[in-house]
Write a protein that binds this DNA or RNA. Structure first.
Lengths: 197, 197
DNA sequence: CCTATAAATGACCGTACGGTCATTATAAAA
DNA sequence: TTTTATAATGACCGTACGGTCATTTATAGG
């Protein structure tokens, strides 16, 4: 007899609203009432699904990174160095949406935001990306396309950091499209030459 | 006849206190009264030297980056690729203090923080680092140590972004010393191989 | 149509912090 | 020592926002 609601869908709806508000106003400026308005709910309702603003934000960050990872990871191990480079190129060539998310993370990853949980989540994300890179490299070493004297684990993790550096700088410092494209090109060449045996 | 004070020294004293508070508590958690206490002043006094917390923070960020730049830039153009690589290595191998500052910037660069001025300052910093790299590369191209078919401007700016990526990941994601050292090694090798003609 | 239970609401509260300003302290010069 | 302009102080104010909860609304089943 009671009213029944899809709680997971509701949580997603709220997280989407939060994302929108954080993107346009920033984390601190976005009020819970704003998020509620965007979600088409009353403020109090948010607290039925998330205990606090921090918890909502933590959930949001996890959700976003899980999304990115699901989008990236399935692209199964490619068999050639060229294929691997193409994969890196895709990672570098981010969408506008990712750029918005990047800006948001800057606030959320700051030390004033309570949860080390969020930092740990993001750290884990890059850890997995690094591990995937390492695996790729190991395979390409076996096929002989990549130098056998590199430390694949360290190199894989480094590549993850390098990509993040590029993506972050593009998002934060308004690097124009043509310019960034030139940067991508030289970066890819540098990495490729560095790996090739 | 009036009481006279060295205003610049006072501003520095306050910025140092702010830095300390931001580092330990984060930008948002640090209250003006905390900063005052650390500086050994009353809260109201801060407002004689900075119009607002935001302005204090903006000044602080500029001050820090100017310091870093002065520390880095004078290391005049080195004449060999090995010298250049050594310079990059130094940039990668950051001190604990820099790591603290890195964490702080994550908050301050977030979109909720009013001033695009700060972002512009940091953008300018990396722009200058990129330009310096480009200059170095141009020289090394002329001496024949570096491939002549690279886009030195784009490569220089990319290297700045790559370094920042590494440094940031170290600061944010608790990469251990040995591990980071291995990452530095492969990164340096990759860059070096990528540049060498 | 009624009822019981889940869901939604938004007025309200507490508090905490940035910023102000009337008052007090300080020190250089006369 | 007095004067006077500058510097420092900290109690106080306003307000804005996260979070609560008594009340109202919605709906599935009988």
């Amino acid at each position: 007899m009671p009213k029944i609601v899809d709680k997971d869908a509701m949580r997603v709806r709220i997280m989407e609203a939060a994302m929108q508000c954080y993107a346009s106003q920033g984390f601190h400026a976005a009020k819970m009432s704003d998020i509620a308005k965007v979600a088409g709910l009353a403020k109090g309702t948010l607290y039925l699904y998330f205990k606090s603003k921090d918890q909502l934000t933590t959930a949001l960050v996890k959700w976003i990174f899980q999304g990115i990872e699901q989008q990236i990871m399935p692209q199964r191990a490619v068999g050639t160095l060229d294929g691997y480079m193409a994969q890196i190129k895709m990672a570098l060539d981010v969408t506008e949406e990712t750029r918005i998310e990047t800006r948001m993370f800057f606030e959320v990853l700051g030390p004033s935001f309570g949860s080390d949980e969020v930092v740990a989540e993001v750290a884990g994300f890059f850890e997995r990306i690094g591990a995937q890179n390492a695996q790729q490299l190991d395979y390409l070493i076996q096929t002989g396309e990549v130098r056998s004297d590199i430390d694949s684990k360290a190199t894989g993790r480094s590549i993850a950091a390098l990509i993040d550096g590029m993506v972050t700088h593009r998002a934060m410092f308004g690097l124009g499209d043509e310019r960034y494209r030139a940067m991508m090109k030289t970066t890819l060449e540098m990495i490729c030459r560095g790996l090739k045996s």
